[in-house]
């Protein structure tokens, strides 16, 4: 038995490191969430250092729950995550089925498709919000003004001109505005993560039972019913994994939101925590605990699912 002891001990450094990494900051967050702790307060200087005598009970939690920005941040987190999930899964299935069969240049198309996934989030956001979506200087602005100019020149046509003058001019959309910044974030993250969905779903499609498929074809099943009754059930688990992993990544989305609008109009939970942390640490910590709870709800499902397939 003793020659098994050392090998088992080899996992302790990893376990200890992660344990400290998880427990120490989380413990502090929990502590801060129950005390009054602000970084700048001239009238109550005793609040500016963490101390147990500043105990506030659930006061920070109440404050956070009652603040309008918290509700908005939850709504935004969910809106952003759900929209991205919906789009990436639908696009992912469609593209995976499309490129799963051999065709000339399949390898190159795969490489082109996967590339966005490796772009660093900061560059992704800077590229999209400036060079593509900017209402004046980006491709969007250039395209809209091009269409408008064409429209104006069409109006001066002899006969059809009257018809074109009924058309309205197009207005470019500013994606840094309150109402639209979430859309920009959804667009850029969908661009980045659809390749991930494609890759996972394609890997799974390759292990699909081909004999079953051929039997279905011989029985005269249509392409749609093959997809609906054979492929889609086969993709069930990979889709669930794509959903869960993305949910965890996107619940903590930060760089894109910061770059697009500095949170204007679409703060999610991590962003709100960052804002609170500029002064009100108690509130930031309470919000953090809510974020942990939200992430845990998602994580439990994922861990259950992976746990089943782990030790086989």
């Amino acid at each position: 038995m003793s020659d098994r002891k050392l090998p088992r001990l080899l996992q302790t450094p990893a376990v200890l490191l992660l344990l400290v990494w998880m427990l120490v900051p989380l413990g502090m967050t929990l502590y801060f969430s129950f005390i009054r702790y602000v970084l700048n307060n001239l009238r109550k200087p005793e609040w500016t250092t963490p101390n147990i005598s500043n105990w506030r009970g659930f006061g920070n939690y109440e404050f956070v729950l009652n603040s309008k920005s918290f509700i908005l941040a939850i709504q935004n987190s969910l809106l952003i995550v759900c929209s991205i999930l919906f789009l990436t899964v639908i696009l992912g299935i469609m593209i995976a089925v499309l490129i799963n069969k051999t065709f000339p240049g399949q390898g190159i198309v795969r490489v082109l498709l996967i590339s966005p996934f490796f772009v660093m989030p900061a560059v992704n956001a800077v590229l999209w919000i400036n060079m593509i979506l900017d209402p004046v200087l980006g491709l969007q602005g250039i395209a809209v003004s091009g269409i408008n100019e064409t429209l104006i020149s069409l109006r001066s046509m002899p006969v059809l001109g009257g018809f074109f003058s009924l058309w309205p001019q197009f207005e470019p959309i500013s994606f840094r505005a309150t109402q639209t910044s979430a859309i920009a974030v959804i667009m850029m993250v969908t661009w980045q993560w659809t390749p991930f969905a494609v890759l996972i779903l394609m890997t799974s499609l390759q292990s699909e039972d081909q004999q079953q498929k051929e039997a279905a074809i011989l029985d005269g099943a249509s392409a749609w019913s093959q997809f609906r009754f054979l492929t889609l059930p086969h993709l069930g688990r990979p889709i669930a994994i794509v959903v869960m992993i993305q949910a965890i990544f996107h619940l903590s989305l930060y760089a894109e939101i910061e770059i697009v609008s500095r949170g204007n109009g679409n703060k999610n939970l991590p962003y709100l925590i960052g804002e609170f942390a500029n002064n009100n640490i108690g509130a930031a910590s309470a919000t953090g605990i809510f974020a942990v709870i939200l992430a845990n709800i998602v994580a439990i499902f994922l861990l259950r699912m992976i746990g089943r397939t782990l030790m086989e």
């Binding site: 990494w21 900051p25 502090m28 967050t29 801060f32 903590s252 930060y254 953090g288 845990n296």
Partner: peptide, 14 residues
């Protein structure tokens, strides 16, 4: 794996 799911922002200030 579950430590990976801990939202980073929650422990930002600590």
């Amino acid at each position: 794996l579950s430590t990976k799911m801990l939202p980073a922002a929650a422990v930002l200030y600590p």
